[in-house]
Design a binder for these strands. Structure first.
Length: 274
DNA sequence: ATGACGTCCTGCCTGC
DNA sequence: TGCAGGCAGGACGTCA
């Protein structure tokens, strides 16, 4: 599933391929994926616009257009972006096609949970509420132990759930939060307000490291995620707990456990994580 | 405000 | 082999 490192990889690879190109046509294959504005209006507003830049905010991929309009993609669980030549047909799960001067950008999304939004600089559509109140990204300089401490203070929820809270850790998802908790030696079931300062320090570092390593390895390909050229990322080769339930812990050999926390599958080592 | 939980959606896996 | 049912999971809505 595309979390911060995956979306960052897509952003970096997409930028040189589409920056400066003009959107010459817009084909909506599944109406559901156009969250704002209405599909007809959406097409009308973007055709003829130039892509000024490609950027990212947390898990959102952003195409900056002329007129300060922004095309915002959220890939959710299974969304991918592919760039293909003009003469090829869209792919099996293509939900939106942006035809550019010299290529086509496909928004592929088998599960149809991902969404696309078009926003202007002044409007803040309620449907994109989360986008406007994102917390700090773990790779940001502002993501310090003090920041995390302040945000987790008085919070009684399980640490795992709060790491997934985009108002606290923008861009975190299930894979990287399990990995970070493993590295920090913290059991995901722990209540956030019961975590010591020392542990918070370790956790901050683990979060920063795991995200940075995810990026330098071009993301994690476990289910649907691929890069814009269809290749896989590499970070799945370095996972210690995610997807390893029942297998021996890489540190101590204990079987990796799987538990539901806040309705999310959560993997951890019962011996290494306290 | 917080935390628990249901909902969306569909491909894929499991079990009969 | 084929089909039904369950599962995955990010963000958001609802409820207490």
């Amino acid at each position: 599933m595309p979390e911060l490192p995956e979306v960052e990889t897509i952003t970096r690879e997409l930028r040189p391929k589409i920056r400066g190109r003009m959107i010459t046509d817009c084909v909506i294959i599944r109406q559901d994926v156009i969250a704002h504005p209405k599909p007809a209006q959406f097409c009308k507003a973007i055709v003829g616009e130039k892509i000024i830049n490609v950027s990212r905010k947390a898990k959102y991929l952003i195409l900056e257009l002329g007129n300060k309009k922004r095309l915002v993609f959220h890939l959710r669980l299974s969304g991918t972006i592919a760039v293909i030549p003009l003469d090829l047909e869209p792919q099996k799960f293509s939900r939106l096609v942006l035809v550019l001067n010299d290529c086509q950008l496909l928004f592929n999304e088998p599960r149809v949970l991902g969404r696309v939004y078009l926003i202007s600089s002044k409007e803040r559509p309620p449907i994109l509420k989360g986008f406007y109140k994102l917390g700090c990204e773990p790779i940001s300089d502002d993501f310090t132990t003090d920041y995390l401490k302040a945000r987790l203070k008085n919070r009684k929820a399980r640490i795992k759930s709060l790491l997934l809270d985009q108002n606290i850790c923008a861009g975190m998802g299930n894979i990287y939060s399990d990995e970070a908790l493993f590295r920090a030696g913290i059991r995901p079931l722990r209540r956030a307000n019961r975590i010591t300062n020392k542990e918070l320090e370790k956790l901050t570092k683990a979060l920063r490291d795991v995200i940075a390593e995810g990026i330098s390895n071009f993301g994690t390909s476990v289910s649907d995620y691929t890069r814009t050229d269809g290749k896989n990322g590499n970070f799945q080769n370095f996972l210690c707990v995610y997807g390893r339930e029942g297998e021996p812990c890489k540190k101590c050999g204990t079987k990796i456990a799987l538990k539901k926390i806040g309705n999310r599958g959560t993997r951890y080592c019962p011996k290494c994580q306290h």
